[in-house]
Each structure stands twice: as structure tokens, then as C-alpha cells.
Amino acid sequence: MNIKTFLKFLLKTFFIFCFTFSFITLSVYFTLLFKPLYYSDINILNIEASTNINKEELKANYDYLITYLTNNKTEEFNLPTLPSSDHGKIHFKEVKVIFDKLKVMLLFSILVSIVGILINKRQKKIRYLLTSSIVLIVLPITLLIPFLINFDRSFTIFHQIFFNNDYWLFDIATDPIITILPQDFFFHCSLLIILSISIISIVLRCIYKSQYKKQHSL
């Protein structure tokens, strides 16, 4: 393989990575912003009964959390009706930093994807759709297996990878927010992310098949 061919391979791989990464990140953001999931879990998981907090207050605190994590402002974390410890505030600030970085990476990936799509369209290449579709269907299956086997362990490993402290281990007495965000809710979030990625994979495969038939019918 000569240098020119190798560079083309690298650019192609980078484009497919950005294209696929964009959909994964969009699935994460969709889940984060899809408040009806939490609202329904209030009933499904009996959060009102387990916390002695009414539904409106639960929604108010959850809405604040989502707004805090997604807006572009830098402000101290202060829930509307629940106290937070210094460690708790630091943890959510760290979570916000992760989402802020993810947002920048998403915008960059979308830009690269648009350029890549235009180049592939000009060259009448559609293979990238199939490749991304395969990656996006393999990934959910790969994630789903450990989640179903032991979500608690998977949840712990996730935090150990992304955080260099144990501030995510909340004390109910000082950070009661942990009581309104039961682990089962995060499991449901994971399932929604996996479902979203799977749907995107199916859509991409359908587009690929449609384009393939169109090209070979000419």
C-alpha cells in the first residue's frame, strides 16, 4: 500500500468514525433531553412514594438538572428544592464539562460528516452507509449484554472510567438528589440510547439498500 492509498484509507476511516459518532452522540443527547422518560418513571418506579416528594417537585428538580447540563452558561449547581454537598456540586460540574466537550465533538463530527457525504455523493459511493449501519447495530448488542447481565457493575465501571474521584457516590443525607434518580432510571436511559442507535442503524441500512437498487437499476 503506497502513501496515497494509505492516506485515502485514513480519511475514509476518519469520515466513517465521525459519521457514526455523530449518531451515537445524538442518541445520547436525545435521551438526555427526552424528559417524558423520567416523567413516566416517576410512576413506574414509584419515586414519589420512595422519596416522599410530590411529582411537581420531582419534575422541577429534574428539569433544573437537565437545563444545567445542557445550557452554555457556567453557574453553580443549585437545585430548586433539594440541598447539595460540595462534592455533589463538583460531580455535576464534572458531568457538565463532559457534555460540553461532547457537544463540541458532535459539532465537529457533523461538519466532517457533511463534507464526507458530499464527497461520497459526488463519487457515487454509498458503502459508508452500510459500514456505519453495521457498526451501529453491533455496538448496541455489545453494550446490551453486560447491561443485562450486571447493570450495577457496568454502571460502576462507567463512572470509574469517566471520573477520577468517588464524588459520584452520593450520601443520601447530604445529596438527596440520588433518591430521585434511582439506578433503574439510568438503566432505562441506557435502553433508550441503545434503541435509538438501533433505529438509526436500520434507517441507514434501508437508505443504503434503496440507493444500491437505484444505482444498479440504471
Rank of each mutant, 00 (worst) to 15 (best):
N72W: 02
L79T: 02
L106V: 14
I90P: 02
L136A: 02
K124H: 11
D100C: 04
I119Y: 12
S84G: 06
I126F: 05
L139D: 03
H159Y: 01
F158V: 04
L65Q: 01
L144K: 04
M105C: 10
I134N: 11
L102D: 00
I90Y: 04
D166H: 07
L106Y: 10
I90M: 10
L129I: 02
Q123C: 10
D63Q: 09
A49M: 07
N52I: 03
K73Q: 01
I119M: 09
N150A: 12
V104Q: 14
T74L: 14
D86N: 12
Q160L: 14
T156Y: 14
L79H: 02
E57F: 01
E75W: 02
V97I: 12
K93V: 01
N78Y: 10
N78W: 04
N71F: 00
K101R: 15
I149A: 11
N120Y: 11
T156Q: 12
K103M: 09
I114E: 07
N164S: 13
L129C: 02
S113K: 07
I145Y: 07
P83Q: 08
L139C: 04
M105F: 14
Y128V: 00
H91M: 02
S133N: 06
S50A: 07
K101D: 13
T81G: 08
S50T: 10
I149L: 13
K59D: 05
V112S: 09
K125E: 10
Y64Q: 03
F99K: 02
F108K: 08
S154W: 10
Q123E: 14
A49V: 08
Q123D: 13
L118F: 15
R153D: 11
S113H: 09
L58H: 04
P146Y: 13
K93A: 12
G88A: 07
S132V: 00
I149G: 06
V104A: 15
L82G: 06
A60P: 00
P80A: 09
Y128C: 00
R122M: 13
L107R: 11
I44Q: 09
N52P: 00
L143C: 13
H87Y: 11
F163G: 06
N165A: 05
T142Y: 14
D86F: 05
I44H: 08
Y128F: 12
R122G: 08
L58Y: 01
N72Y: 03
K89F: 01
F99A: 01
R153V: 13
T131V: 14
V112L: 13
G88D: 07
I110V: 15
L148I: 14
T51R: 03
F158N: 09
I66G: 04
I141N: 10
N164G: 10
V135E: 05
S85G: 02
F158I: 04
Y128A: 00
F92S: 09
I44L: 10
Y64E: 03
N120P: 07
L130D: 05
K124G: 08
V138E: 07
N54K: 13
E75G: 06
L102P: 00
H159E: 04
I141F: 15
I47L: 03
N120E: 09
